[in-house]
Amino acid sequence: MNPKSNPEPTPAPTPEDLGIPGLFDVHVHFLPENIQRAVWRQFDEAGPKIGRPWPVLYRGSDEERVEQLRGFGVRRFTALPYAHKPGVAAYLNGWAAEFAARVPECLRSATFYPEPGVEGDVAALVADGVEVFKLHTQVGEFLLDDPLLLPAWEVLEESGTPIVVHVGSGPVGNAFTGPEHLERLLRLFPDLRVIVAHLGAPEFAEFFDLAERYEHTRLDTTMVFTDFFVPFPDALLPRVAALGGKLLYGSDFPSLPYEYGHQYDGLARLLGRAPGLDEGWLAGVCWHNAAALFGS
């Protein structure tokens, strides 16, 4: 066989090749041990909100997982607790504050839930230095425009604090997921700094519409372009290029069923597949866009 007919694939550029200090991962979870183990049980059981076998690879202690991230070249990351029912947000937020205080690379992360007093809680968290919030409507089973949440959204729109929101219908949708829910919220609070998790999978095009329409709406790449998650339509790649400045690298570490580097490799495989998908685009997604948003 003529070796020239099957050339070796071009190695993916490293962050060093891209001129960035490493990866800025905006979708990492660190949780209190009891809650982390409960989350992993859901993955192990392939529960109804998981929908498929999902063998989690990274189950070490907090300290071990922080060292793993450092070894993967992650230089900044989140902790992203998310409240799944009333009465747990304060516990999660207190733990996350202590975690961020001892891990310098970690953004101060917090969550909230539609329950009485949420406006005051969110205002106090913002005043205390929280840098990013996380909501998960599929797990928490609430609407983004729940009346109890509206005063909290007003606080967050005014403060400009980013919020990572899992509102896409992947991996399993329910009555609380889908782009229509975020669209209703953005009509009320158009300047919210929302980061749509998983590029909104599987409703990619609809969430792209919202990011194109609303100046401060962004998306993270978590699990998209891997061999495991929802397939991404090639026809949307030109829009991925055009949205470059609004895309942020995310992984969903530690609850991954594949090696951490697979997410980066999936993004690197996009290079050259549409105009604008170049190394500058990749450097923006992996570092510059998040650094500009969070001031790091």
Rank of each mutant, 00 (worst) to 15 (best):
D121Y: 12
L271M: 01
A235H: 09
I195S: 07
E63Y: 05
F99L: 15
R76A: 13
E16I: 01
G51A: 06
P86F: 12
L248S: 01
G284Y: 00
E8C: 01
P32H: 06
D209A: 03
P7C: 06
D44R: 11
E8L: 10
F142R: 02
G22D: 10
T222K: 02
S61L: 04
I50P: 00
P171Q: 00
G117C: 08
A12Y: 02
L57W: 12
H136E: 13
Y91P: 01
E131N: 02
G140H: 10
R193C: 14
P257K: 09
L219E: 11
Y264S: 02
V26S: 05
L18D: 09
S109W: 13
L31M: 13
V240F: 00
V28P: 09
H27P: 00
R213I: 04
D17Q: 06
G178Q: 10
F30N: 04
H136L: 04
K85F: 13
S61T: 15
L18H: 07
H136W: 03
I50G: 00
E105K: 01
G276K: 00
V56N: 08
A152R: 09
R184M: 01
L125D: 15
G261N: 11
I50M: 01
F176E: 11
V224K: 00
C106I: 11
F207D: 08
F204Y: 15
V196Q: 10
N93P: 03
A283I: 00
V230T: 14
K134S: 13
F294P: 01
V194N: 10
G173K: 04
P147K: 08
L69Y: 10
